[in-house]
């Protein structure tokens, strides 16, 4: 694997993201609005239950939402659709000419694009949370949450490539991002802690990789010092990258492009 190419893909994407201040502003502004809205909802809900809900305090729930929204809003959830379009249009064929894995370069570039947004979300989320509910319940866990956010984003990017790779076979990934997004929203614990789900659904959620994409960093930010969540995320990251690579490897053998 040529690491220099991956570093270049990462760095180029990061610089490109930093040169789009308009979309940067919109993304951060929208993030703040979402955190304020959803965080307030959960805070009010906890307050109506004597301050705690499913083991989470009102303060913890606000920090939970700030982290879970950071994990999902730092990357494009329409990535599934964008990758699918590149596969269906044949644009991906050009990338196959490089002496490095297509999926590896794409994951490196997407991660590079996500990093500036992630940093701005973390800063904005921390500021909003401090103003609205005060400091996190457990600072150590909150710091682990920052590492967990990086793993969450990598898991999400890898999973979206694995999910979108189906376009090699069905020639269409449009609109499927809606379904993927909802898996992350509910089973991934982005909208609500998985402890809120009915027991059976919570067990299903725990067995799926989506919790690595939102729940893990959010749980840590909420004040639960559970470093084992980082191990779970790391394991899922290896699995998801493997699945994405296998999907693309099999799909690239089927790809037929006319013209170009």
């Amino acid at each position: 694997m040529n690491l220099r190419i991956l570093r270049t893909a990462f760095g180029t994407a990061t610089r490109r993201a930093l040169r789009e201040p308009g979309s940067f502003f919109v993304a951060t502004g929208f993030y703040v609005a979402v955190v304020a809205m959803v965080g307030t909802l959960w805070r009010v809900a906890a307050a109506s239950h004597h301050g705690t809900l499913a083991g989470y305090t009102a303060v913890g729930l606000f920090w939970y939402i700030a982290a879970s929204e950071s994990a999902t809003m730092a990357i494009s959830l329409r990535l599934v659709e964008e990758i699918g379009d590149d596969i269906v249009s044949g644009a991906i064929a050009v990338e196959m000419l490089r002496p490095v894995s297509v999926v590896a370069v794409r994951i490196a570039a997407e991660f590079g694009r996500a990093v500036p947004k992630l940093i701005s979300c973390i800063l904005a989320g921390t500021a909003v949370s401090l103003v609205v509910v005060g400091p996190p319940r457990n600072v150590g866990a909150a710091l682990l949450s920052a590492i967990s956010l990086v793993l969450a984003i990598l898991c999400n990017i890898a999973a979206q490539h694995a999910f979108a790779g189906i376009a090699f076979w069905i020639r269409d990934a449009r609109s499927t991002w809606f379904l993927y997004q909802k898996f992350v929203f509910v089973l991934g614990g982005m909208l609500l802690p998985i402890q809120i789900l009915p027991t059976a659904l919570e067990q299903i959620a725990r067995a799926l990789p989506f919790t690595a994409m939102a729940y893990a960093p959010a749980r840590l930010a909420a004040g639960f010092f559970e470093p084992e969540l980082l191990l779970v995320q790391s394991a899922w990251l290896v699995v998801l990258i493997g699945v994405a690579a296998a999907t693309f490897q099999a799909g690239e053998r089927r790809l037929q492009v006319v013209g170009g």
């Binding site: 009010v44 809900a45 239950h49 499913a54 509910v186 609500l192 809120i196 009915p198």
Partner: peptide, 14 residues
Amino acid sequence: VFWVLFFHRVGTVR
């Protein structure tokens, strides 16, 4: 589904 789960757990909010 989200809202049903939310209010099932929370009850009534304002």
